[in-house]
Design a protein around this nucleic acid. Structure first.
Lengths: 208, 208
DNA sequence: GGCCAGTTCAAACGATCGTTTGAGCATACG
DNA sequence: CGTATGCTCAAACGATCGTTTGAACTGGCC
């Protein structure tokens, strides 16, 4: 059903690329290693040889993208955090823009959908892995949100952050479906999208 | 791992109840018919006897809740749609309040999480089923949203509706996790939650 | 009682899953 | 050249999946 041999890069990279596509399309359980290795053009046993198990492969798919994504987010946050003239918009831009760049990249456009799938699964070991490895990022952003919104109680703030980040993840997971020409209007549209999302998030966090 | 025999109601109802719980916890693929029938306290073959197949069972889990949910939504919408003094808040309340009631019910609290899972899966036959059977509900709400927000272009309106409904589904899917006492403060809190969600949605739809 | 439709049951079916195995191939180093 | 090392390969492993089967059990009706 899904051959489509990918024949660029090393075996590990081909597996990671095919895994990202199939995990986004069919979920972590739904995508089998046989579909995956066939699509990548590698042998079935290559997954267990290079990654140890399917679960470790899933973690590696996340690690490859989230390391870069969260590094960008923290770098952007560091430029504005703690300063007197920083606005809530600035903090949200530091959170949203790196993810938006990733979701518009050719190779990483499907990853946000993978992330949205993980976001919808409330009970798994995957959430523990994400929390253990990338929880500090959300913790830093939460601290800055609390500084920008001192009138909110802690539970109220957490609740709103969860609501807004859930909406943003859901929104950006749909961007991979639309193929857009790489011309001038594409960058214009991306900037409009960024500003829409940021204003949406500002409203969702601070409206009452 | 998950015995917990449910011994109330008919076989069909026990299966539907256990299916809702396990689909919410482990997803449609992750929950096997053997786990499901063991938890329901019925024989393995009962699913195929009463529903025909696992896919039909999934559809029936949705149908049982969505028939009531969407009937409530349409009834609430009918009271406010097309009238001159209707506000965007009224329309959103007609959409949000029935779902909020369902998510706070004892038996249906997990269904919103099942719905959130289906929301995150962008490519399946399940979306076709939901669109074919309940698409008219969202179409009626969209028409009323368009009447309330005439300044928005069609693509812009659809995009915002998708963003807001995604956030709302995500938000309400988390409510089942918190067990609350059935006292006076519970109804107070639910009313606060409803107003928060409605104002969040108003802001998300109309903020710019 | 005898019969019958509706339901439940244990058991098995073939298919597919993740994982393991051991031989085979390539390249580099002594 | 011989051999070690890193990798790929076809084949098989046991487990679990959704589904089917045919017998056993249930209640009501003649």
């Amino acid at each position: 059903m899904v051959p489509s041999v990918n024949s660029s890069g090393s075996t590990k990279e081909r597996i990671l690329g095919a895994a990202e596509v199939l995990f986004a399309q069919r979920g972590f359980d739904g995508a089998s290693l046989r579909q995956l290795t066939t699509a990548a053009g590698v042998n079935l046993a290559a997954v267990n040889y290079h990654f140890g198990s399917k679960d470790k492969l899933v973690e590696e798919v996340f690690r490859r993208r989230l390391d870069a994504l969260n590094a960008s987010r923290l770098a952007a946050l560091a430029k504005v955090a703690g300063q007197a003239d920083t606005t809530l918009e600035d903090v949200l831009a530091a959170y949203i823009r790196p993810a938006l760049d990733l979701s518009h990249d050719g190779s990483g456009s499907l990853f946000m959908r993978v992330l949205a799938r993980a976001f919808a699964e409330h009970d798994d070991t995957l959430r523990q892995f994400l929390s253990a490895n990338y929880g500090h990022v959300m913790r830093q952003f939460t601290a800055e949100f609390a500084r920008q919104l001192p009138q909110l109680s802690k539970p109220e703030l957490y609740w709103r952050i969860d609501l807004v980040t859930g909406a943003l993840t859901h929104a950006m997971s749909g961007f991979g479906m639309i193929q857009r020409k790489h011309d001038v209007s594409e960058q214009v549209h991306r900037e409009q999208t960024a500003q829409h999302l940021i204003r949406f998030a500002v409203a969702g966090l601070s409206h009452p």
